[in-house]
C-alpha cells in the first residue's frame, strides 16, 4: 500500500487546503490524488462493490470541497474526508441491501509488492486470506470499519473514534470484540496452517 498522504507535511497540507479554498483547480486535483486511493480502498472493503465505492468516494470529495470552509486545520484532512466518506457509506448501506462482492479477485487492478507476493502465493496462504476476509465481512459495520481503519489504514483508536464519531472506549471495545469474533470464526484453521502462516508473516514483516 502506498502512503501518499505521508509524503506531505501538515504545513504543506494546510497551504494546499488554503489554495483549494480559494478555488485553485490544481490544489483540488492534488488533494484528490493524495487521498482517493486510501478512501476508495476503505469504502470498497466496507461495501464490496466497485461502482458504489467510486460513487461514494466522489460524493465524499464533492461534499468535502463544498464545505471546505468549515474544515479545521487542527485535524488531518484525511480524517475529515474519511468521516464524510464513512457517513456517505453508511447512508448508502442503509438504503441498499447488503451486497456481495461483485468483483473477481483476479480481475482487480492490484498494487503488488514483489516480495510479499512471493511469500503469499502458496495455496494455503490464499485459502487463509479468503477465510480471513470472509470473516471480516461477517463482522458488524462498526466492527468492520474499526478493523479496516486500524489494520488497513494504520490509524490509532483516537483517529478512528473521530472518523466513526464514537467515544475512544467504544472503538476499543469494537476492536476487542472484532478480534474475538475473528478468532472464533477462524477456529477451524489447522494448527499446521497457522504455524506455516505465522512463519511466513514473520519473514515478510
Amino acid at each position: 500500500m502506498t502512503d501518499k498522504e505521508g509524503s506531505i507535511s501538515r504545513q504543506d497540507e494546510a497551504q494546499l487546503i488554503g489554495r483549494a479554498r480559494s478555488g485553485e483547480r490544481e490544489a483540488l486535483r492534488q488533494l484528490v490524488d493524495l487521498h482517493n486511493d486510501r478512501l476508495f480502498a476503505f469504502i470498497w472493503r466496507m461495501i464490496r462493490n466497485h461502482h458504489d465505492a467510486e460513487e461514494i468516494c466522489q460524493d465524499a470529495f464533492l461534499k468535502a470541497f463544498a464545505s471546505l470552509d468549515t474544515f479545521s486545520c487542527d485535524y488531518r484532512f484525511s480524517t475529515w474526508l474519511f468521516t464524510i466518506g464513512y457517513r456517505v457509506c453508511l447512508n448508502r448501506m442503509r438504503r441498499k441491501r447488503p451486497v456481495t462482492s461483485d468483483l473477481e479477485w483476479s480481475a482487480l487492478p492490484i498494487e503488488v509488492d514483489n516480495d510479499t507476493a512471493a511469500s503469499l502465493e502458496s495455496e494455503d496462504a490464499t485459502r487463509l486470506k479468503e477465510q480471513v476476509w470472509a470473516a471480516v465481512e461477517r463482522l458488524t459495520v462498526p466492527q468492520r470499519a474499526t478493523v479496516l481503519l486500524f489494520y488497513r489504514q494504520s490509524m490509532g483508536c483516537h483517529e478512528i473514534a473521530r472518523i466513526l464519531e464514537l467515544p475512544v472506549a467504544t472503538v476499543k471495545s469494537h476492536l476487542h470484540r472484532a478480534r474475538n469474533r475473528l478468532r472464533e470464526m477462524l477456529e477451524s484453521l489447522r494448527d499446521q496452517d497457522l504455524e506455516q502462516f505465522r512463519n511466513l508473516s514473520t519473514r515478510t514483516g
Binding site: 509488492d113 510479499t116 486470506k129 508473516s201
Partner: peptide, 20 residues
C-alpha cells in the same frame, strides 16, 4: 496466534481495489 494471523492478513494483504 489466530488473532495475530488475522490481523496480519488484514494489514498486509496486497490485494487492494483501486479507483479506475
Amino acid at each position: 496466534a489466530l488473532m495475530q494471523v488475522s490481523g496480519h492478513v488484514i494489514k498486509s494483504d496486497p490485494d487492494e481495489a483501486t479507483v479506475q
